[in-house]
Design a protein around this nucleic acid. Sequence first.
DNA 1: TTAATAGTTCACTAATTTATAAACTATTAC
DNA 2: GTAATAGTTTATAAATTAGTGAACTATTAA
Lengths: 106, 106
Amino acid sequence: MINKKIFKLHADVCKALGHPLRIEVIDLLQDKELCFSDILAVTGGLKSNLSQHLSVMTKKNILKMKREGQCNYYSLSSDKVAQACQLMREVLIDSIKNHIDLIEKM
Amino acid sequence: MINKKIFKLHADVCKALGHPLRIEVIDLLQDKELCFSDILAVTGGLKSNLSQHLSVMTKKNILKMKREGQCNYYSLSSDKVAQACQLMREVLIDSIKNHIDLIEKM
DNA sequence: TTAATAGTTCACTAATTTATAAACTATTAC
DNA sequence: GTAATAGTTTATAAATTAGTGAACTATTAA
Protein backbone atom coordinates (compact mmCIF):
# COMPACT_ATOMS: atom_id res chain seq x y z
CA MET A 1 0.00 0.00 0.00
CA ILE A 2 1.39 3.37 -1.09
CA ASN A 3 -0.43 5.13 1.76
CA LYS A 4 1.40 3.10 4.37
CA LYS A 5 4.67 4.60 3.14
CA ILE A 6 3.29 8.12 3.47
CA PHE A 7 2.10 7.34 7.01
CA LYS A 8 5.60 6.14 7.85
CA LEU A 9 7.23 9.31 6.51
CA HIS A 10 4.63 11.48 8.22
CA ALA A 11 5.10 9.61 11.50
CA ASP A 12 8.87 10.01 11.24
CA VAL A 13 8.49 13.79 11.07
CA CYS A 14 6.12 13.76 14.05
CA LYS A 15 8.42 11.44 15.95
CA ALA A 16 11.16 14.04 15.65
CA LEU A 17 9.05 16.27 17.95
CA GLY A 18 8.68 13.57 20.56
CA HIS A 19 11.55 14.19 22.96
CA PRO A 20 11.77 16.69 25.85
CA LEU A 21 15.09 18.13 24.72
CA ARG A 22 13.83 18.54 21.18
CA ILE A 23 10.70 20.30 22.40
CA GLU A 24 12.89 22.59 24.51
CA VAL A 25 14.98 23.46 21.45
CA ILE A 26 11.90 24.19 19.32
CA ASP A 27 10.62 26.40 22.13
CA LEU A 28 13.93 28.26 22.24
CA LEU A 29 13.98 28.81 18.49
CA GLN A 30 10.40 30.13 18.22
CA ASP A 31 11.49 33.63 17.32
CA LYS A 32 15.23 33.58 16.75
CA GLU A 33 18.12 31.57 15.45
CA LEU A 34 20.83 30.43 17.83
CA CYS A 35 24.16 28.73 17.45
CA PHE A 36 24.91 25.34 18.90
CA SER A 37 26.73 26.58 21.97
CA ASP A 38 24.00 29.11 22.81
CA ILE A 39 21.46 26.30 22.71
CA LEU A 40 23.71 24.07 24.81
CA ALA A 41 24.14 26.87 27.37
CA VAL A 42 20.35 26.92 27.86
CA THR A 43 19.51 23.23 27.71
CA GLY A 44 22.57 21.88 29.51
CA GLY A 45 23.71 18.28 29.11
CA LEU A 46 26.36 16.81 26.85
CA LYS A 47 27.24 18.48 23.57
CA SER A 48 27.24 15.10 21.82
CA ASN A 49 23.71 14.44 22.95
CA LEU A 50 22.44 17.85 21.83
CA SER A 51 24.24 17.49 18.52
CA GLN A 52 22.50 14.20 17.85
CA HIS A 53 19.07 15.59 18.67
CA LEU A 54 19.65 18.63 16.44
CA SER A 55 20.75 16.29 13.69
CA VAL A 56 17.53 14.25 13.98
CA MET A 57 15.42 17.39 13.68
CA THR A 58 17.47 18.81 10.82
CA LYS A 59 17.19 15.57 8.83
CA LYS A 60 13.42 15.60 9.25
CA ASN A 61 13.17 19.24 8.15
CA ILE A 62 12.06 20.47 11.57
CA LEU A 63 15.14 22.69 11.81
CA LYS A 64 17.49 24.23 9.33
CA MET A 65 21.16 24.83 9.95
CA LYS A 66 23.56 27.39 8.56
CA ARG A 67 27.31 27.33 9.11
CA GLU A 68 28.91 30.71 9.69
CA GLY A 69 32.61 30.74 10.46
CA GLN A 70 33.10 28.30 13.30
CA CYS A 71 29.50 28.52 14.48
CA ASN A 72 26.49 26.47 13.42
CA TYR A 73 23.26 28.43 13.58
CA TYR A 74 19.99 26.58 14.00
CA SER A 75 16.46 27.85 13.37
CA LEU A 76 12.99 26.44 12.73
CA SER A 77 12.54 25.30 9.13
CA SER A 78 9.22 27.16 9.05
CA ASP A 79 6.59 28.68 11.26
CA LYS A 80 4.49 25.54 10.70
CA VAL A 81 6.69 23.76 13.22
CA ALA A 82 6.01 26.39 15.88
CA GLN A 83 2.30 26.29 15.10
CA ALA A 84 2.07 22.51 15.28
CA CYS A 85 4.00 22.53 18.52
CA GLN A 86 1.69 25.14 19.98
CA LEU A 87 -1.37 23.10 19.00
CA MET A 88 0.06 20.02 20.68
CA ARG A 89 0.78 22.06 23.77
CA GLU A 90 -2.90 23.06 23.79
CA VAL A 91 -3.89 19.40 23.54
CA LEU A 92 -1.73 18.84 26.64
CA ILE A 93 -3.29 21.79 28.46
CA ASP A 94 -6.81 20.58 27.59
CA SER A 95 -5.87 17.18 28.95
CA ILE A 96 -4.67 18.68 32.23
CA LYS A 97 -7.86 20.74 32.46
CA ASN A 98 -9.94 17.59 31.97
CA HIS A 99 -8.07 15.93 34.82
CA ILE A 100 -8.64 18.93 37.07
CA ASP A 101 -12.37 18.94 36.22
CA LEU A 102 -12.58 15.26 37.10
CA ILE A 103 -10.93 15.83 40.46
CA GLU A 104 -13.15 18.80 41.26
CA LYS A 105 -16.26 16.71 40.63
CA MET A 106 -15.18 14.13 43.26
CA MET B 1 13.69 22.76 36.70
CA ILE B 2 9.92 23.07 36.40
CA ASN B 3 10.15 23.71 32.64
CA LYS B 4 11.85 20.39 32.03
CA LYS B 5 8.74 18.65 33.37
CA ILE B 6 6.53 20.60 30.99
CA PHE B 7 8.82 19.70 28.08
CA LYS B 8 8.52 16.05 29.07
CA LEU B 9 4.70 16.17 29.16
CA HIS B 10 4.60 18.12 25.91
CA ALA B 11 6.97 15.65 24.25
CA ASP B 12 4.87 12.74 25.47
CA VAL B 13 1.83 14.14 23.68
CA CYS B 14 3.86 14.69 20.50
CA LYS B 15 5.36 11.22 20.78
CA ALA B 16 1.86 9.78 20.64
CA LEU B 17 1.67 11.04 17.02
CA GLY B 18 4.92 9.36 16.07
CA HIS B 19 3.87 6.01 14.69
CA PRO B 20 2.58 5.12 11.20
CA LEU B 21 -0.47 3.27 12.48
CA ARG B 22 -1.36 6.13 14.80
CA ILE B 23 -1.03 8.65 11.96
CA GLU B 24 -3.25 6.42 9.84
CA VAL B 25 -5.90 6.37 12.58
CA ILE B 26 -5.78 10.17 13.00
CA ASP B 27 -6.17 10.49 9.25
CA LEU B 28 -9.18 8.18 9.30
CA LEU B 29 -10.85 10.08 12.14
CA GLN B 30 -10.43 13.56 10.60
CA ASP B 31 -14.11 14.04 10.02
CA LYS B 32 -15.94 11.17 11.67
CA GLU B 33 -15.97 8.82 14.59
CA LEU B 34 -15.50 5.13 14.03
CA CYS B 35 -15.73 2.06 16.21
CA PHE B 36 -12.77 -0.18 16.87
CA SER B 37 -13.66 -2.83 14.32
CA ASP B 38 -14.27 -0.26 11.58
CA ILE B 39 -10.80 1.14 12.21
CA LEU B 40 -9.31 -2.35 12.24
CA ALA B 41 -11.02 -3.18 8.96
CA VAL B 42 -9.20 -0.23 7.33
CA THR B 43 -5.78 -0.47 8.97
CA GLY B 44 -5.47 -4.24 9.09
CA GLY B 45 -3.14 -6.01 11.49
CA LEU B 46 -3.80 -7.53 14.90
CA LYS B 47 -6.63 -6.24 17.04
CA SER B 48 -4.36 -6.35 20.11
CA ASN B 49 -1.85 -4.11 18.40
CA LEU B 50 -4.46 -1.58 17.29
CA SER B 51 -6.05 -1.59 20.72
CA GLN B 52 -2.72 -0.73 22.35
CA HIS B 53 -2.06 2.11 19.92
CA LEU B 54 -5.55 3.53 20.46
CA SER B 55 -4.98 3.29 24.18
CA VAL B 56 -1.73 5.29 23.94
CA MET B 57 -3.47 8.06 22.00
CA THR B 58 -6.50 8.11 24.28
CA LYS B 59 -4.30 8.41 27.38
CA LYS B 60 -2.49 11.38 25.85
CA ASN B 61 -5.75 13.09 24.92
CA ILE B 62 -5.20 12.72 21.18
CA LEU B 63 -8.35 10.63 20.91
CA LYS B 64 -11.48 10.27 22.93
CA MET B 65 -13.46 7.07 23.29
CA LYS B 66 -17.11 6.44 23.93
CA ARG B 67 -18.59 3.04 24.66
CA GLU B 68 -21.97 2.36 23.07
CA GLY B 69 -23.46 -1.09 23.55
CA GLN B 70 -20.74 -3.51 22.56
CA CYS B 71 -18.89 -1.01 20.38
CA ASN B 72 -16.16 1.44 21.32
CA TYR B 73 -16.28 4.59 19.24
CA TYR B 74 -13.12 6.61 18.76
CA SER B 75 -12.78 10.20 17.57
CA LEU B 76 -10.22 13.02 17.68
CA SER B 77 -10.21 14.80 21.05
CA SER B 78 -10.31 18.12 19.18
CA ASP B 79 -9.70 19.68 15.80
CA LYS B 80 -6.30 20.84 17.11
CA VAL B 81 -5.02 17.32 16.59
CA ALA B 82 -6.06 17.32 12.94
CA GLN B 83 -4.56 20.79 12.46
CA ALA B 84 -1.24 19.87 14.04
CA CYS B 85 -1.10 16.71 11.99
CA GLN B 86 -1.80 18.65 8.81
CA LEU B 87 0.98 21.13 9.62
CA MET B 88 3.44 18.30 10.17
CA ARG B 89 2.38 16.77 6.88
CA GLU B 90 3.19 20.09 5.23
CA VAL B 91 6.62 20.05 6.87
CA LEU B 92 7.10 16.62 5.27
CA ILE B 93 5.92 17.85 1.88
CA ASP B 94 8.23 20.86 2.07
CA SER B 95 11.07 18.52 2.87
CA ILE B 96 10.31 16.34 -0.14
CA LYS B 97 10.11 19.46 -2.33
CA ASN B 98 13.53 20.56 -1.08
CA HIS B 99 14.98 17.18 -2.02
CA ILE B 100 13.43 17.38 -5.49
CA ASP B 101 14.86 20.90 -5.97
CA LEU B 102 18.30 19.66 -4.98
CA ILE B 103 18.14 16.81 -7.47
CA GLU B 104 16.92 19.09 -10.27
CA LYS B 105 19.90 21.41 -9.73
CA MET B 106 22.37 18.56 -10.28
C1' DT C 1 -26.90 -20.43 30.64
C1' DT C 2 -24.31 -20.89 26.70
C1' DA C 3 -22.38 -18.94 22.83
C1' DA C 4 -20.98 -15.10 20.00
C1' DT C 5 -19.26 -10.56 19.37
C1' DA C 6 -16.18 -6.73 20.47
C1' DG C 7 -12.51 -5.41 22.32
C1' DT C 8 -8.72 -5.09 26.24
C1' DT C 9 -4.95 -6.76 28.90
C1' DC C 10 -0.91 -9.44 29.71
C1' DA C 11 3.56 -11.72 28.99
C1' DC C 12 7.16 -12.10 26.15
C1' DT C 13 10.53 -11.15 22.40
C1' DA C 14 12.40 -8.15 19.03
C1' DA C 15 13.48 -3.67 17.42
C1' DT C 16 14.40 1.08 18.14
C1' DT C 17 15.87 5.02 20.71
C1' DT C 18 18.65 7.34 24.07
C1' DA C 19 22.73 8.76 26.86
C1' DT C 20 27.49 8.70 27.44
C1' DA C 21 32.29 9.18 26.45
C1' DA C 22 35.94 9.11 23.36
C1' DA C 23 37.67 10.14 18.91
C1' DC C 24 37.43 12.92 15.10
C1' DT C 25 36.91 17.26 11.74
C1' DA C 26 36.93 22.01 10.47
C1' DT C 27 37.90 26.74 11.25
C1' DT C 28 40.38 30.50 13.37
C1' DA C 29 44.29 32.52 16.11
C1' DC C 30 48.98 32.67 17.43
C1' DG D 1 52.63 24.50 12.12
C1' DT D 2 50.38 24.21 16.87
C1' DA D 3 46.81 25.02 19.80
C1' DA D 4 42.11 26.39 20.81
C1' DT D 5 37.31 26.58 19.72
C1' DA D 6 33.05 24.61 18.00
C1' DG D 7 30.89 21.10 17.01
C1' DT D 8 30.07 16.09 14.73
C1' DT D 9 30.60 11.20 14.50
C1' DT D 10 31.04 6.69 16.29
C1' DA D 11 30.64 2.78 19.48
C1' DT D 12 28.37 0.80 23.13
C1' DA D 13 25.30 -0.06 26.92
C1' DA D 14 20.77 0.97 28.95
C1' DA D 15 16.06 2.09 28.44
C1' DT D 16 11.87 2.31 25.91
C1' DT D 17 8.63 0.98 22.45
C1' DA D 18 6.47 -2.22 19.29
C1' DG D 19 4.43 -6.68 17.65
C1' DT D 20 2.51 -11.17 18.68
C1' DG D 21 -0.64 -14.48 20.52
C1' DA D 22 -3.11 -16.14 24.34
C1' DA D 23 -6.11 -15.13 28.05
C1' DC D 24 -9.49 -12.28 29.81
C1' DT D 25 -13.91 -9.05 30.31
C1' DA D 26 -18.26 -7.14 29.04
C1' DT D 27 -22.36 -6.97 26.39
C1' DT D 28 -25.91 -9.00 23.56
C1' DA D 29 -28.43 -12.95 21.44
C1' DA D 30 -30.30 -17.57 21.26
